[in-house]
């Protein structure tokens, strides 16, 4: 018993703040939302138990639920790789040998600073309008572009472009990761005459794997939960023609515009399961490609 305590005491001591927060602040609301997902709840009167009705309705009758899933999955599949590759490429360029690196870093982070402000929404709608700057550039090469943001066939791509352009946070994390790789490894490789791409696959990628893994997991979760930018760019309703009906935008409107918090909670738990499956898969796969220093023998 005493050994059990001495073995576990340090771990739980350091975990204490999180444990307190989890059990006192976080867990309750999460369980409440699970309970609410089995009720009809309009936020004014008390919730009424309806069993599995919300879930049954969702999978059998709700066409917009499937539409929202489709939009969200398309976005995740496009935006996550695009943003990560962009972020890694820029981080590698910025990592080495430039004196003005900090200036560039600040500049490249700027779009992410503007986040999902009203300014970005207005700007994006102007840029990708029929007579906007993007089409003006395209017309130089003889392309007559569509009205990107209001054409249901192209509107989603404008958000993917936004995601690519706001690559600041994964870039910064990549950069921190690159900076944590001991420089003497590269020096040794240099002396051995190892070509650059080999240095990349032999040193950079394996040592950066934990950070790549982190960015992959977090960006995927974030992309599934994308809300603010879409909400503000589509004026809160997923228009045109539901082509920007992201899952969380649908969920938000079900809850706060149509007073169906119970149904929205059910939607949330379905999304949670979807995200958990993807994250779980990522963690399983990580055994084969992510190795940590403190577990190396």
């Amino acid at each position: 018993m005493r050994r059990f305590i001495t073995r576990n005491a340090p771990g739980y001591t350091f975990l204490l703040p999180w444990l307190i927060g989890f059990f006192l602040l976080t867990l309750g609301p999460i369980l409440a939302s699970l309970y609410l997902s089995f009720t009809k709840y309009d936020m004014v009167s008390a919730p009424r138990w309806v069993g599995w009705d919300n879930y049954v309705y969702m999978f059998t009758r709700d066409r917009r639920f499937w539409k929202a899933l489709h939009v969200t999955f398309s976005y995740v599949a496009l935006a996550v790789p695009a943003r990560l590759i962009m972020a890694l490429a820029v981080a590698m360029i910025l990592d080495k040998g430039l004196r003005s690196i900090s200036l560039y870093r600040a500049i490249f982070y700027l779009p992410s600073l503007l986040g999902s402000s009203i300014a970005i929404a207005i700007l994006w709608r102007q840029l990708f309008a029929k007579d906007g700057a993007v089409n003006a550039v395209l017309s130089f090469v003889g392309i007559d572009g569509p009205s990107w943001i209001t054409d249901p066939n192209t509107s989603l791509y404008t958000l993917v472009v936004l995601a690519m352009w706001q690559f600041g946070s994964p870039m910064l994390i990549f950069l921190a990761g690159l900076r944590s790789i001991p420089k003497d490894l590269y020096e040794a490789a240099e002396i051995d005459g190892t070509p650059a791409w080999r240095q990349f696959t032999r040193i950079t990628l394996p040592l950066l794997a934990p950070v790549i893994f982190f960015n992959l997991v977090l960006q995927t979760i974030d992309a599934f939960k994308t809300f603010s930018s879409v909400f503000i760019i589509s004026h809160g309703n997923g228009a045109p023609a539901d082509s920007l009906l992201f899952y969380t935008v649908y969920l938000f409107n079900e809850a706060f515009s149509f007073f169906r918090m119970g149904y929205a909670s059910a939607l949330a738990w379905v999304l949670l399961v979807i995200i958990a499956v993807f994250t779980g898969l990522a963690f399983l796969s990580s055994k084969y490609w992510v190795h940590y220093e403190n577990e190396r023998d």
């Binding site: 989890f22 599934f224 938000f252």
Partner: peptide, 29 residues
Amino acid sequence: RLRFNGRNFFFALMMLTLMIPYHVVLIPQ
């Protein structure tokens, strides 16, 4: 860096809290 019983369990729990859409815990919170 520390080893203790239930580490993986709590880690999984912690990650789960990251996945729930914020808007449905807003009101209970």
